[in-house]
Amino acid sequence: MGGERGRGRKGQDGVNFLAIVGRVFLAFVLQVGRFSIFTGRAVSHMVRPPFYPRLIARQMVEIGYYSLPVVGLTTLFSGMVLALQSHTGFARFSAEGAVATVVVISLTRELGPVLAGLMVAGRIGAAMAAEIGTMRVTEQIDALSTLSTNPFKYLVAPRLIAGVTMLPLLVLVGDIIGVFGGYVIGTTKLGFNPATYIARTAEFLQVLDVVSGLIKAAVFGFVIALMGCYHGYHSRGGAQGVGAATTNAVVSASILILILNYMITELFFAQ
């Protein structure tokens, strides 16, 4: 022990820039490696039986059903503001007729999945990180292993499965609510004929618009659950550690959602 300390002190005295760079780099590589292994294990348990139907169902209700109000409100007002904004914008070059089309395409392609993803990341990602993190620091995860139950199978896989399946459904519902919001504003405030507005909504909408949004949603659902589980699983140091894990889960999921959103869009629509 004494020898180790002595060596540490010497390293601090000679301010060694390279040592700091090296340490940061090693910590980064360690993180990347740990995250890759976690993801690999999580996915392999996600697709391999046995499954825990009760746990999957509970997570589906938690993610799908209880997020409906949040996602519904978010997309409703987004649809409304989209109609309003695009109308004032397009009026400048007499293209008000495009409002319905703009509302539906922006919602299904972009705003539906991204806004729902960010809201669910705050709601569900935080909850997952906090719950699994608390289980970690109170040794409940160790207890699972001693009871011949794989924590990946029992804790991580059900959350990932629920995330991947529920987010697209949420987004689909959100899309519809958002379009309805645009319709309400369009017909009551902007003076569109209801039948014309609906016809305009359907006219230029393509299957790919909706499908690409739903694929995004599935990816975002995976990312949210993965970040929640990963940061919770590796949290340490009591209440403070769980708090940090929760923050990291939400922040990393949100950033990843925005980055992946661009990449998937490029994949689908870049010519």
Binding site: M135, T138, E139, Q140, D142, S145, T146, L147, S148, N150
Partner: peptide
């Protein structure tokens, strides 16, 4: 590992019950 641990019971310090 599960097969080995099936022979082992453990009482954790804070009980570590699933809440």
């Amino acid at each position: 590992r599960d097969r080995v641990n099936a022979h082992i019971g453990m009482l954790f310090q804070g009980a570590a019950l699933f809440d």
